[in-house]
Nucleic acid binder design. Structure first.
Lengths: 145, 145
DNA sequence: ATAAATTAAATTGAGTGCAATTTAATTATA
DNA sequence: TATAATTAAATTGCACTCAATTTAATTTAT
């Protein structure tokens, strides 16, 4: 096998590329299930936070999801329009926007609860591989660049 | 620890979420290096294919990168405008668009060759973890949903 | 040979992502 | 206490990403 100083530039020698491709691939596999409840993938993970926390401000949401207000502001307006959350400035500090789940949003949880089980079979990872992957990904996320 | 039937909907119990977050995080870490050569991450992986293959059609490129013409067509027009590739219909089959690297595109490779080494230190994974991650990601990509 | 089916790109439109800037509110400081 | 610095969202603008449709070329089936 011939070597060149350019080997490091080959797609097959990258870790970033399969990570990027895999991420998009998995989101694509969620789509048919998310379509049934009318959410995009990003809206779904926002709702996951809402189902757990009931009420958060945009900053906290951004910290949970690694997203900023440029992404979240229009997305939250859509979720508000669909009736799943409310958006109100905080009384204590009017810079903060409090996002709170509605009854409709709570109801959606009962439809969404099936999704993790429906999606479970869509990769062929062993439980050990799942655990490994989880650990490695969070190790990367924990690294300050 | 209390359990609920909604546990599977918690963000911390998802594999897809850290994958999605990690992918975006890594692309973000490439940005300062890619800025120096004036490419976006997606343009960079397209150029990686071009540096290896010299000439491909859009379909092949899409298969390599898991992207479709909706993403590739405008992106390739930008790379053509920058002078790194040419775009020409195939003589044999005019449905195919042949994308070929230019001399300018080849020159860019010498600037880009440093990037994999500059980026190498940006995660704290052990070599074993890198290999594990690589294997697991390609296992997922190889799964037909 | 011609019509029907298939294929490859391009186009369209909705929805992110994100860097950079702006606006408004709050806090820290001279 | 005015002013400066900081903070939280919103806004702006550019670049994807992808489903669905359209257009044009080629194959297949009649």
């Amino acid at each position: 096998m011939k070597h060149s100083k350019y080997d490091a530039l080959k797609l097959e020698n990258q870790l970033c590329f399969p990570l990027y491709a895999c991420s998009r691939e998995i989101v694509k596999r969620y789509k048919p299930f998310l379509d049934e409840i009318g959410l995009t993938y990003t809206q779904y993970i926002v709702m996951m936070v809402m189902w757990e926390r009931k009420s958060v401000n945009v900053k906290e949401l951004g910290e949970c999801l690694y997203l900023d207000s440029g992404t979240l502001t229009p997305l939250l307006k859509k979720l508000e329009f669909k009736g799943y959350v409310t958006r109100m400035r905080s009384d204590k500090d009017e810079r903060n926007l409090v996002v709170a789940i509605t009854d409709e949003g709570e109801k959606l949880k009962d439809k969404a609860v099936e999704i993790p089980f429906q999606i479970a079979g869509c990769t062929n990872l062993t439980p050990e591989e799942g655990v490994q992957l989880y650990g490695i990904l969070y190790k990367i996320l924990g690294t300050n660049p």
